[in-house]
Structure formats: C-alpha cells, structure tokens
Amino acid sequence: MLSISQELVDAIWAHARADHPDEACGVIAGPVDSDTPTRYIPMRNAAMSPTFYEFDSLELLKLYRDLDDRDEEPVVIYHSHTSTEAHPSRTDIAYASEPGAHYVLVSTREELAGANEFRSFRIVDGIVTEEPVQIR
C-alpha cells in the first residue's frame, strides 16, 4: 500500500495538468527505509513528449547525489499518461529500475473529464502489482 498526503497528491496533479498534453514526471523522496514520501521533486521531461518521458540525464545525477546526501530514497516515482489509462505501459515496465519504489501513474486524458485516476504500482523484475493508495 502507498500512504501519501493529500498535499503531495495535489502537487502531482498540478504538475500533470500543467504539462498536459506532454507527460509530466518526478519523484517524491523520503527517508531511507521509511516508505514515507515527504519531499516533492518535479523533474523535467527531457523527451517533452505526449507519449514518452525521461528524466534529464544531468538532473538525474544531481537527484541521486542529493538523495544520498540526505539519506533519502525515491519512495514514489510518478508520471502522467495524457491519452491512455493510468496503468504501466510496456515501456514503463521495461525501464522500471527501482524495485523498492511506488510507481504512481495519473491520467489526464480528456475522456475522464476531470475524473481523477491516480494509481500506484510495484514493478519488480517485469511483474506489475497494483496496490491500494491511502491518502492521509
């Protein structure tokens, strides 16, 4: 289960809506082994694409150095889908490389007309498992 604050959920939505129709992406960091997302870090989508996202390479290096310095880890890795459902795609699964992270997907596709689709998954060795989201 992912337990996350309303404030952080709102921050992810704000980012996803601002970058629509491109995919938005980022991380919520938290203390190592806490499983608690606390620090919101929006990342630039270097692909600037409605169908693909990739953290900028040098921002990625800075991110991981900061996490190390602060004894944090990426508790949540989020991105938006802008024309499909909030479920990991084949490429999402192929590139997922943080088995300890909660992969959050939101969908800003227009058919939803404002309905919120905010889902969380574990992706380990190519196996996707959806998990409940508890907003506190």
Partner: peptide, 11 residues
Amino acid sequence: ITILPAVAGGS
C-alpha cells in the same frame, strides 16, 4: 564513476 538507470517510460 556513477551508474544510474534512466528513469523513463511511455504510454
């Protein structure tokens, strides 16, 4: 040297 997998995906 630092090795980091890209954080990437797509719909």
